[in-house]
Design a protein around this nucleic acid. Sequence first.
DNA 1: GGATACAATGAAAGTGCTTTCAAAAACCTT
DNA 2: AAGGTTTTTGAAAGCACTTTCATTGTATCC
Lengths: 335, 335
Amino acid sequence: MAKNKTPTIYDVAQRAGVSITTVSRMLNAPDKVNPETRDRILAAIDALGFVPKAEARARALRQTGRIGVITPFFTAPSFVQRLRGVASVLSKSSYELVIYPVETLDHLQGYLSSIPVMRNLDGLVIMSMAIDPQDAKRLIDNGMQTVLIEYQHPELSSIVIDDFEGGRLVGEHILSKGHRIIGFIGDIEPPERLQIHPVLSRLKGLQSVLEKNNVPLPEAYIRSAPYMQEESKQAARELLGLPQPPTVIFAAADVQALAVLKVAREMGLKVPEQLAVVGFDDIDSADYLDLTTIRQHLDESGKLAVEILLSHIADPSRPPQHVNLPLILIERETA
Amino acid sequence: MAKNKTPTIYDVAQRAGVSITTVSRMLNAPDKVNPETRDRILAAIDALGFVPKAEARARALRQTGRIGVITPFFTAPSFVQRLRGVASVLSKSSYELVIYPVETLDHLQGYLSSIPVMRNLDGLVIMSMAIDPQDAKRLIDNGMQTVLIEYQHPELSSIVIDDFEGGRLVGEHILSKGHRIIGFIGDIEPPERLQIHPVLSRLKGLQSVLEKNNVPLPEAYIRSAPYMQEESKQAARELLGLPQPPTVIFAAADVQALAVLKVAREMGLKVPEQLAVVGFDDIDSADYLDLTTIRQHLDESGKLAVEILLSHIADPSRPPQHVNLPLILIERETA
DNA sequence: GGATACAATGAAAGTGCTTTCAAAAACCTT
DNA sequence: AAGGTTTTTGAAAGCACTTTCATTGTATCC
């Protein structure tokens, strides 16, 4: 047997001693071919394990739909948790989950220009990325059902959280705990590809509360650091090395808060007595570390996104839906 | 314009004043065509509402550009990290990443019976799951390139680690630290769907070292608990409630080790003075918590799997490759 | 026996794309 | 300004089938 290639209609024809025409006809209109010939062809088909490719594909495309998720390269636990939500509802339906990890803006551009046009996706979830109006328009024009997470567009469904409010919640909490010297760590200038600025809003929310209560937050107490562990630790060390170090640090992402906790341990600071820490996201690890943080229902946002998506795929006439997920402060041990 | 037919690439080409080649190229490798031309084509596409037929494309293409990953429903950080490895190499190629989360054995069976026949995948990675000989045969017969992680089959490429050796490493380490009363927590009876028993091997590795050194490990000090946080904590509490509590606990998964650490904190035990903890996996959080653990290069295993897969897709005549990834003990603060 | 009607088949021409290869154009060097 | 690269492009040759159309061999009728 000439193997390792998947058999084509040509192989079948040759083996059955007929032309490809006859094989094709046998497949599409069996009654138009002589029963003897038919049996010969059938035997050849079985022997070769032939499956008409186009048909398989068409069937595959119909029976199992595909939904795509565009996500910043998922190094961050928060994205993972959202994906988990997405997968959990998808695995109950018969949809495949296709992931498009975005590392650079080019990537995103590439996906966005080919996806709507290629039409081999039934729906799309775009996580934490700004998309420009032109791309949005193309999605809409091509009837690609899309749900945005952490970004908005009037004509596309979206799920957002109120980052400003989150910052406020943190501000109120730490003030109520009596803190007056406050440090902030966050990735204020996020990677260009994202083009969204949740961290800045969180900071502003914090600032608004502090101002209202006449608690200062000098420039020196605000450090911008990327999500990486090392950079975050460095930022924490700088903050704690200040002549008058903060008694609480608000890290705008849990992963960064974890880094702060690690520094605190290194320096032998008792948490929360000598240093309180508040995070943002409520990733899984936050619970393990007893980190006080803002829960933004990451799993839920993923689930919801897909549910909205599926309902819109089922009935494309539904208007876009805009959901604002509530935030709550989870008080644990670190603040 | 002859309309009422759905537009083809020819119509687009004509309208944009270029050849079909250029249109096709624009669709598949946008960066290889002049931006001006690109805009013209894009405009034509938009104007005509052109949609490339997936079927035709697959036909001409002879490959699908999709690689699939079958993974236990990815709630566990360790799977996530492997996926990260997978995605990192995939995003450099032009393959789509399709994820098949497995929740039940039925799921797996469904995937395994349709995937090879459907032929809409160029390659497959199967993580941490046993596949029976029949399914393996089907994959092989249909020429589906496959890489197994944490499971072996003589005719399929695979990536494994030596769990027994990992257990040994832990045993030697804790003995060298002077511990003589040892506790073990692990998911010894894993979910039926997995049908693989890495945890048992880890335990056996540990036991082999202990025996050799005449250190006892009574039944009561071995607790089986599923990966969930609550169950793991409960197991830890039981262990620590023993008349003679262990001075070190080896948790066969980092997530469980984190739960142990949490219990220790609850009980006010100093780590590692009063209770040492060793994990297994070296997930991201392990670093944040300074957990002493066995590193099994999760990211790397994912990367490697895809690299092997891609090389086999490129040249299907290559023989299956069996890789044994080395384990090392990472000594941090907890033991 | 000759004309007519079919049934069964294959050669070859699509189908809507991708890809290879080579030519043309634009850009650098020295 | 001559030569060498690189970038853009299109003609044409696939891909795995489906369809059209012409050819053959019979069966049927008068």
